[in-house]
Structures are given as structure tokens and as C-alpha cells.
């Protein structure tokens, strides 16, 4: 392989950086429907992992009308419904929290989704509400402003949760209930309160 000299011509051409970056995932989304068992299941379907769990150990959330009309099938899943569609939810974790989460994942063999579900099962709404009121008052208190803490969960390193529609709706509702600024902040707070 030869290393070429810089082409002067390149420097005078219209600059390619102005071009919008091409989205190479275009046309690929939606090509794969949710997987179905091509083979007859050898054993009765294993328990659906994270899906039903957010409500565990808490009062059942009053479902929003939008999600209430489609109760999840428990045994077979004949057709993909709105709530079945699993998608990514980005959560931003401060570096120290990310370390805690990674350690928990490694030592306990749980994935991020499991850890999140577990955190919400363990932490009460009041604790979460307090957490967010405190962060807010710290920023708006009179006198000399305290060192501004970045609202937790809005900056940091991204992790992805895989959540289905029911879980996302549940999070949105919880976000409203406890006054969290975003989904990401809510999840980060729950993880911090549980693991920190």
C-alpha cells in the first residue's frame, strides 16, 4: 500500500464536511419483524424477563389510556402489539454511577434492564420525589448560589436499555409522578439510589 501525497485538488473542491452525514441504517429498520419461534418450542416459554417486572413490589401503576387497551398476552404472542415493540431507551450515567452499574452487572450477572427493574422495585416513589425536589431547590435557593450540580442523568455516558411499550409508558408516567426532568434522569436516579 502506498501512502499518497496530499492531493492539492482536494483542498479546492467543495468541502465534503458540509455534506450531511449519510445514515447507513436507512432502509434497514423494520426489515426484521419481532422474532418468532420457527421451531415448535421445546419447553413451555420461559418467563418474560423484564417486561412485567417494573410493577413488582409497588402499587400497580394506573395505566395510561393509550396503553391500557392492549393487555399483554401472557402465554403465546400471536401478533406484535404496540406494547410488544421493544426499542432502545438511552440513559446517561455519570462516570462513577456507570462504574457501579457495571460492577453490579458483572458480579451479579444481570443486564442493565434487569438492574433498572430491580432499582424501581426497591425504591419508593417518595424517595424518588425527594431526590428530584432536592436537586431542584439546590439550584433555585436564594443567597449565594450553591455550586451548580448538573441535574443528574442529563450528562454522562450513554447506556441503552431495551424496553417494550409497556415499560416505556410506565417510565413516562413515573417521570411525571415524581417530577423527574427526563426518562434518563429518572432511571439514573433510581440506579443511583439503589446502588450508590
Amino acid at each position: 500500500m502506498t501512502i499518497e501525497r496530499p492531493h492539492l485538488a482536494d483542498a479546492f473542491k467543495p468541502q465534503p464536511t458540509k455534506k450531511e452525514p449519510v445514515d447507513r441504517s436507512a432502509g434497514l429498520a423494520g426489515l426484521l419483524p419481532p422474532p418468532r419461534r420457527v421451531t415448535p418450542p421445546a419447553a413451555p416459554a420461559v418467563e418474560a424477563p423484564a417486561e412485567a417486572a417494573p410493577a413488582a413490589g409497588e402499587k400497580a401503576p394506573e395505566p395510561k389510556p393509550a396503553t391500557a387497551k392492549k393487555p399483554r398476552a401472557t402465554a403465546a404472542r400471536p401478533q406484535a402489539t404496540e406494547t410488544d415493540v421493544t426499542s432502545n431507551v438511552a440513559v446517561y450515567l455519570e462516570p462513577d454511577l456507570l462504574e457501579l452499574v457495571k460492577t453490579a452487572r458483572r458480579t451479579r450477572g444481570l443486564n442493565y434492564d434487569d438492574l433498572t427493574v430491580e432499582a424501581f422495585a426497591a425504591i419508593s416513589d417518595d424517595t424518588l420525589r425527594n431526590h428530584f425536589t432536592q436537586t431542584r431547590t439546590a439550584q433555585t435557593s436564594g443567597g449565594m448560589p450553591t455550586r451548580v450540580r448538573r441535574p443528574r442523568g442529563t450528562s454522562g455516558i450513554q447506556i441503552q436499555l431495551r424496553l417494550d411499550g409497556t415499560q416505556r409508558a410506565w417510565l413516562d408516567q413515573k417521570q411525571e409522578e415524581v417530577g423527574a426532568p427526563s426518562r434518563s434522569a429518572l432511571v439514573a436516579a433510581a440506579l443511583r439510589l439503589q446502588l450508590g
Binding site: 447507513r24 441504517s25 436507512a26 432502509g27 434497514l28 426489515l31 418468532r36 420457527v38 421451531t39
Partner: peptide, 29 residues
Amino acid sequence: SGLAEDYQELTRELLTRLIEIENEAVVTT
């Protein structure tokens, strides 16, 4: 970018073909 486009197009073909195969498998079993 040309090579990236090849991969994008090929991935599209592969995934489409895979679903075609999957659907055949469902019909015949």
C-alpha cells in the same frame, strides 16, 4: 462512502432474504 453503501445495500438484501426464508419455513412446518 461507496463501500459503506455496498454494505448498506447488501444488508438490506440479506435481511430481506432471511425473512423470506423464515416465512417459507413457517408455511412448510
